[in-house]
């Protein structure tokens, strides 16, 4: 109905990014990639995206988690939907002993495991985008009423 949605993917494995990007592009999304958290955060601050796909395990550990936490503190980025794509489930016990499921890194996140099947990926992406749009509409309706 509207302009193409812009997505950003932050993951340190270019080959994996390529696979994800191809699926999303085929579904008519505009996709940019950043290959480390620093570059990724810069892109988030300077450009506009509708959704972030984030790898949790980058660099020397859970650098993706740090990025997600930073986003939560940023008033502009706080509302951006984040889809976490990661092989983290195996490492979760090792990272967060005693946690049966992954902690909710950011308020609006959703987690899928690598590798992610095209159908599932597209479902999640569109669901998150819709939820974000609905939330935005609600806030706007709320602010016009007051």
């Amino acid at each position: 109905m509207s302009a193409r949605k812009r997505l950003l993917i932050i993951d340190d494995d270019p080959d994996f990014v390529e696979g994800i990007q191809a699926i999303l592009k085929a579904a008519n999304y505009e996709v940019e990639a950043a290959y480390n958290p620093k570059e990724g955060f810069q892109a988030l601050q300077t450009k506009h995206y509708d959704l972030l796909l984030l790898d949790i395990m980058m660099g020397r550990g859970a650098e993706g988690v740090m990025l997600a936490r930073k986003m939560r503190k940023d008033p502009k980025l706080r509302e951006m939907p984040v889809l976490i794509i990661t092989g983290i489930r195996e490492q979760i016990a090792f990272l967060f002993p005693g946690e049966p499921v992954h902690p909710r890194f950011v308020a609006v996140d959703e987690l899928v495991e690598k590798p992610v099947e095209p159908k599932l990926l597209l479902e999640r992406v569109s669901a998150l985008l819709q939820a974000a749009a609905a939330r935005k509409a609600r806030t706007e309706a709320g602010s016009t009423r007051t």
Partner: peptide, 8 residues
């Protein structure tokens, strides 16, 4: 990465 590319 291989699997994701196969999916793609």
């Amino acid at each position: 990465a291989v699997q994701q590319s196969l999916f793609a």
